[in-house]
Amino acid sequence: MQTLDSTVKWFNKTEGRDKICKVMQYGSRFLMWHLKVNRGNEQLSNQFKNLFQSTRDARKLFRLAKSLNELQTIIDKVGQNCKTPQEQIARGLNILTRIWFLLYWLFDNLSVLSSIKFTTSDPKPLQKKAMTFWFIAIITNLIDTVRQLIVNLQYIQQNKTNQSAQQQINNKQQQNRVLYLNLIKIFGDLMPAGQGSEFFPKVLKINLNDGVIGLGGLISGAVAAYQAY
């Protein structure tokens, strides 16, 4: 267990770098689309396309073995002592979210290893599976985030005249500010995940362009970079 803890801490040192690369990746994707469609500048659009593809591939390599982070979180959550039904629900949703993310990282890792010809598998179906698990993880995380917000807002409403609960109310309000930022990240990530998993084009019959996908990822990456700073 100590070895796993040390490995996870070591991998986490690259987290801030990954968020900056995410901003570059999706910002470049948005500019690639904008310059081609709205400006007609094919040459500059191709330059940003190259930057988008390079940062995308670099991030995939950064994330090799990141599923260990999720495994560590799952182990910690399973051993967590929950005293109330609300805590049990929160733990269950969190564990479920981390399982989906673990599968996302796993297939994402297999996809990039296939892309660089380290393995002989076809990277496209692996990437689609990765994006599908990412989309499911985001939806589960959205449910958990909304649930936390509702619980906090109900507590604040019920105890707003209770002077002895003011410190707890302040804590809930601080938590809500983080949760609102998380919601922005979630809705931003839904754009690339929904398109990559083919949920939007096949289920909702909506085909997002690179501009929408890039803008969604850019917003999510900017919020994540701000939170990691």
Rank of each mutant, 00 (worst) to 15 (best):
T7H: 00
T7V: 02
T7Q: 00
N12W: 00
N12K: 07
N12T: 00
K13E: 10
E15P: 11
I20D: 05
I20S: 03
C21I: 12
C21F: 13
C21A: 14
K22V: 11
M24A: 04
M24V: 14
Q25N: 07
Q25K: 03
Y26W: 11
G27V: 03
G27D: 03
G27Q: 01
S28G: 01
R29L: 15
L31A: 01
H34A: 13
H34E: 15
L35H: 03
K36T: 03
V37D: 06
N38Y: 11
R39F: 13
R39E: 15
G40L: 09
G40C: 07
E42Q: 06
L44R: 09
Q47C: 07
K49S: 06
N50G: 08
L51H: 11
L51M: 15
Q53W: 13
S54C: 02
R56C: 03
D57Y: 04
R59E: 02
L61T: 14
L61F: 08
A65Y: 13
K66W: 14
K66D: 12
S67C: 09
L68P: 03
E70N: 10
T73R: 05
I74P: 03
D76C: 02
G79I: 04
N81W: 06
N81H: 09
C82A: 12
T84I: 08
P85W: 04
E87Q: 09
